[in-house]
Structures are given as structure tokens and as C-alpha cells.
């Protein structure tokens, strides 16, 4: 496998980075990087970590990093998680208030422990911490419950003071969305599976409305709605499929759609194959709607979606 760290890869411009990923040869990993500058979204580091832990450390080749910003990779714990040496020397600072280094979470209990440690680490107000905690919990639980990955979820996050934004990346190398969703549905492509997974009340565990006792199929819809309400980017990449919820101007009206393809978005259906699922989230904190107001909008959209599905199943009169 080959992955190149470009000078810039954030959710708005991540597409070329993903197109350049080479998944062939899963027993080795070659990491190259821009020589002058590396500035990447946490999701990029989560992806490299998820790939790297599947490869023996002596089969990971990382070119000597020349970019001035190379220290960032060390601070985020990339070399530590890959178990490969780094010659880059940095002075470690207390991370509170700035970032969550790459963290591997494999079990429900590890997640609960991480949640208690994470919220104080971000040094945010209660409402903001609650929103971030909500997103992280739901995304990581998806991995633990559905991905069937022995390595679990890799996540990291960065707080950007200037934009007052949190960027979060979560990656796994599990079975991917299509395999999970197709336990109950028949998506023919990864993109179609992503579209289904983002709809409220759609879960791979059952076709029954209301889901099973443990799964409702609501988690990704909630997260897309939270991000949509803050008018930020949300990216999901699984198999060859890629969906990006695009930023919206601050003046635009809050509108939640049950069908993700009715939101302002972009898609790709033929990206290099990612075995598993990758999710990237941006949340601009001063644009985050009050959570309880957002829940009202989610409530309305969710119940309308179920009513529409109910209506679609009504028996129709036969006219001859």
C-alpha cells in the first residue's frame, strides 16, 4: 500500500489525497510526503494508523520527512501507533485544549473510558463538549458493533483556535458499510450503501422499522444532521464510495433531509478501495446550533421519513 501526505488535505480538498491512495499490497505500507509542508486533517492520520497497524513495523517504509510541519505527525502519535522509530525530536506539551492524539479503541469499555478522558482534554464549554462527545461515541460504537475489525477504531481530533473548529477523523479496516447494510438490504454499490446508511431508521441489522433492541439505524443520520446544522463538512468513505456533505453559507436556512443526496453534497463511486470505513467531521463551534433546537429538527425529519416509508407500503387500489 502507498499513501502520500500532501501539503494540504482537509475535508474540503481531500478528494485528490484519496485518489492518490494505493491499496495494493496489503503486507507493506509506504508513506511519502510533501517535502515543504504537511498540513492534514486528523482523518488522514487516522487512516494511516488504521492501515499501518495491519502491517509489520519492519514492512512500513516512511521517507525521511523534510517538511517544517513534520513535528505535528509526532505530536499526534503517528509513529508511536505504527511502532516505527522517528528521528524527529519534539518537546512534548500537555495536549489539553488542543488535540486528541491518535487513539485506538477496540471495546465498548475502552470507549466509555476514553469518553471520560476526552471531554476534559478538549477544554470546551459543556454544550460544545456534549456535541463532540455525541459524535465520537456514536461513530466509534458503529465501528465496535458493525465493522468486525480486530483492530477497532482509530480516531484523532484537533482543535483550531483561529477558526474555533474541531476536526475529527475516525477510520477502521473492517468489513465496510456495504457488507454491513447488505445484511438487510441489497445495495449494489458502496455509494448506494452509504446513501442507505445515512438515512434515518436504516440499519443493516434488520429491515423492521424501529430496528432491533440494540440498533435503530439513526446514528449516522444524527451526526450528519449535527454537522449540517453547523454548516460544516462531513465525509464518509467506504469501499469505492465517497460522500461529502458540503459547507453551506452561514445565512442559509437550516434544513435537514432524510435522503443525504438531497443535501448539498458531492460523491465519488470509483475511489481506490478502502477496506473498511473512514469518517471525517468538521464542527465550527460558534456555529453549532443549540443542541436541543437541533433535536427538534431531527425529530421532525426522522418521523416524517418513517411516515413516508409507511405510506410507500400502503396497499393501493387496483383500477381496471
Amino acid at each position: 500500500m502507498k499513501i502520500h501526505l500532501p501539503n494540504s488535505a482537509f475535508l474540503g480538498n481531500i478528494d485528490p489525497f484519496l485518489r492518490g491512495f494505493d491499496p495494493s499490497g496489503s503486507d507493506s505500507l509506504e508513506i511519502t510526503a510533501n517535502e515543504k509542508w504537511i498540513s492534514v486533517h486528523p482523518v488522514v492520520l487516522s487512516m494511516i494508523a488504521a492501515l499501518g497497524v495491519r502491517v509489520r513495523p519492519d514492512h512500513i517504509k516512511c521517507v525521511p520527512l523534510e517538511a517544517k510541519s513534520k513535528h505535528y505527525l509526532v505530536r499526534m502519535g503517528l509513529f508511536r501507533i505504527l511502532n516505527i522509530p522517528s528521528v524527529i525530536r519534539v518537546v512534548e506539551h500537555e495536549p489539553a485544549g488542543r488535540f486528541i492524539p491518535i487513539t485506538q479503541i477496540r471495546t465498548s469499555d475502552e470507549l466509555t473510558k476514553f469518553m471520560t478522558e476526552m471531554i476534559p482534554l478538549l477544554h470546551l464549554g459543556f454544550d460544545q463538549a456534549k456535541t463532540i462527545g455525541y459524535i465520537v461515541s456514536e461513530l466509534v460504537r458503529n465501528v465496535i458493533e458493525h465493522a468486525s475489525s480486530e483492530h477497532g477504531a482509530f480516531l484523532c481530533a484537533q482543535y483550531y483556535v483561529k477558526s474555533n473548529a474541531i476536526r475529527i477523523g475516525i477510520a477502521d479496516t473492517g468489513v465496510g458499510i456495504k457488507k454491513t447494510i447488505n445484511q438487510a438490504y441489497s445495495a449494489t454499490t458502496d455509494l448506494e450503501a452509504i446513501q442507505l446508511a445515512l438515512r434515518p431508521g436504516i440499519t443493516g441489522t434488520t429491515r423492521r422499522e424501529g430496528g432491533t433492541e440494540q440498533n435503530a439505524g439513526a446514528g449516522l443520520f444524527f451526526i450528519k444532521s449535527i454537522v449540517g446544522a453547523s454548516r460544516d463538512f462531513f465525509v464518509i468513505y467506504s469501499g469505492n464510495g465517497f460522500y461529502k456533505l458540503l459547507k453551506r453559507p452561514p445565512s442559509s436556512r437550516l434544513r435537514l433531509n432524510a435522503d443525504p443526496f438531497k443535501d448539498r453534497h458531492s460523491t465519488e463511486g470509483d475511489l481506490p478501495y478502502w477496506q473498511g470505513t473512514v469518517v471525517g467531521v468538521d464542527i465550527t463551534l460558534d456555529q453549532t446550533k443549540e443542541f436541543s433546537l437541533l433535536l427538534d429538527a431531527i425529530h421532525k425529519t426522522y418521523t416524517s421519513a418513517i411516515r413516508e416509508r409507511r405510506k410507500a407500503r400502503y396497499k393501493k387500489p387496483r383500477f381496471i
Binding site: 434515518p200 431508521g201 423492521r208 422499522e209 435503530a216 439513526a218 416509508r309 409507511r310 407500503r313
Partner: peptide, 8 residues
């Protein structure tokens, strides 16, 4: 959503 969904 449970009330809406039940019975379908």
C-alpha cells in the same frame, strides 16, 4: 419513531 414504526 418506535410508535411511528410499529405496525408497519
Amino acid at each position: 419513531y418506535m410508535q411511528e414504526g410499529m405496525g408497519i
